[in-house]
Amino acid sequence: MNEQLLSVILTIITASTPLLLAAIGELVVERSGVLNLGVEGMMAVGAVSGFGAALLTGNPYVGVLAALFAGALLSLLFGFLTLTMVSNQVATGLALTLLGLGTAGLMGEAFVGQPGVHLERLHVPGLSDIPFIGPILFGQDLMVYLSFAIVAGVSYLLFRSKAGLIIRAVGDSHQSAHALGYSVVGVRYLCVMFGGACSGLAGGYLSLAYTPQWVENMTAGRGWIALALVVFSSWLPWRIVVGAYLFGTITVMGFSLQAYGIGIPSQLLSALPYVVTILVLVLISRNRALMRANTPACLGQPFVPDR
């Protein structure tokens, strides 16, 4: 039983990490007042780039870096359109998702059915061998620790540093931030690229650790769930952890219930995370006071300086 519980917990962690990575990146983007709906597309391209780079070099960490850069590069395209060309952010985000999914499908054709390179779990002699706690706390792969480090870093950056103050100012009132002499577009470019890099990493984690292989549409809506998680968190970094692990748990529960072969059709269990996403969104958005207090005031609004 202990063995089983341990393996379930380990699976939950691997299922939650990509959601955590993508959502924390998007949180920073939205805090700066930009809504990037292209998370799913950037994840897909990150997944295929990470897989390909790891396969070619045999080194999973090269894959991780490739995923990161691919995501950031794609987000730059989004940045150019929405920030420089002031296009509609919703439409451009959708375009990014469509382009990303298409590009990933095309790039990945050569990789279908190839055995992937697995991002191995770390092993700290002594510590990792502690029964039960050891593998959970000290036996994860690097990205799991990195995901928590990013959350901590973002939390510090946003609420304890001047840079964070500027980011939040840009997101809450871009005209005032501009009047104070901050480069609204510059700050937003950086945030968008950070979000892209995180989405890329999230995708890379899917194809390097979660299921080390390339399957088309392997992101399976996780980018969209990550977007919902940002709303769920009411734009507070640590709540992203709660949300991501909640969803990771639900996903894994679906699979485990299938394995136990209870009477519910497997498709309906697979639909669980999507249904829960909708329920959670409803519960959160019912609380309009909370939504109004934390939603970045300029979210999704284009910015053109009045000189």
Partner: peptide, 13 residues
């Protein structure tokens, strides 16, 4: 699919 995505980007720009 890629062409369709690129097309949408150009339209928006």
């Amino acid at each position: 699919r890629v062409f369709q995505g690129i097309l949408l980007f150009y339209i928006l720009a």
